[in-house]
Computed example of a mutant assay.
Amino acid sequence: MAAKLKKGDKVIVLAGKDKGKTGEITQVMPKTGKAIVDGVNIAIRHQRQTQNSQGGRIPKAQPIDLSNLAIVDKNGKPTRVGFKMDGDKKVRFAKTTGDVIDA
């Protein structure tokens, strides 16, 4: 199945403890159906000090399920993503407005 959400997309969280928060996707994991979003689903991870890095309690973004994310359209509202043919090219479009997401 084609990926409806991609790295760099601005998304909003639909469910969970961070419901309503927005952020940008930094990584997508299609095999597990999850994505890492900047500033969302943050957990504290304990890091051991090494020669190269300072140790301590580091906040780290954890993966969130793709079903709990929706792309943000130009009006700032969540929308679903569809696919259509634009000439001979397959493009993603916002279902609410019909605008092409990536040209």
Rank of each mutant, 00 (worst) to 15 (best):
K19Q: 15
D18A: 01
G55T: 03
N52V: 09
A61R: 04
D65R: 12
Q54A: 08
G76Y: 08
G87M: 08
G23C: 05
N41H: 13
N41A: 09
G82Q: 05
S67C: 12
L14W: 06
T32C: 07
K60L: 10
V37S: 04
G33S: 13
K74H: 06
T32Q: 15
D9P: 11
Q47V: 09
P59M: 11
V40R: 07
V13G: 03
K90W: 05
G87F: 05
L5F: 07
Q62K: 09
K90R: 13
H46D: 06
D88S: 14
V72Q: 01
A2D: 05
K31I: 13
V72G: 04
Q62D: 14
T96N: 15
K90S: 12
R48F: 04
A2R: 09
T50V: 15
V100C: 03
A15T: 14
K95R: 15
A2V: 09
D86L: 09
K7Y: 04
P78I: 03
F93C: 04
H46S: 13
V72D: 03
G87R: 08
I58K: 11
P59H: 01
P78G: 04
Q49M: 12
G33A: 15
I36N: 03
T96D: 15
K4W: 01
D86P: 01
T32V: 14
V13F: 05
G76P: 04
I58C: 10
K17S: 13
I64M: 06
D18T: 08
G20W: 14
K34V: 09
P59W: 00
N52E: 08
G76R: 03
R48V: 07
A70Y: 04
K6T: 00
N75C: 10
V37D: 03
G76H: 04
T97W: 09
G39L: 13
I64Q: 04
K4Y: 05
L69S: 02
I101N: 04
I12L: 04
T96H: 11
Q62L: 15
L66S: 01
M85Y: 08
K90H: 07
I64N: 01
D9G: 05
E24C: 09
M1W: 11
F83D: 09
G98D: 07
K6E: 00
R80F: 15
D88N: 15
P30T: 11
M29S: 11
V28M: 10
K10N: 11
A94P: 02
M1L: 10
R80L: 13
Q47L: 09
R92Q: 07
F93G: 00
T79W: 02
I36Y: 05
G16D: 10
R45Q: 10
E24F: 15
L66Q: 09
T79R: 01
M1A: 14
I71P: 05
T26C: 10
G98S: 12
G56I: 00
G76I: 12
I12M: 10
L14F: 10
A61Y: 00
T50Q: 01
A35E: 03
G87V: 01
T26F: 10
R57A: 13
K60P: 01
Q62I: 13
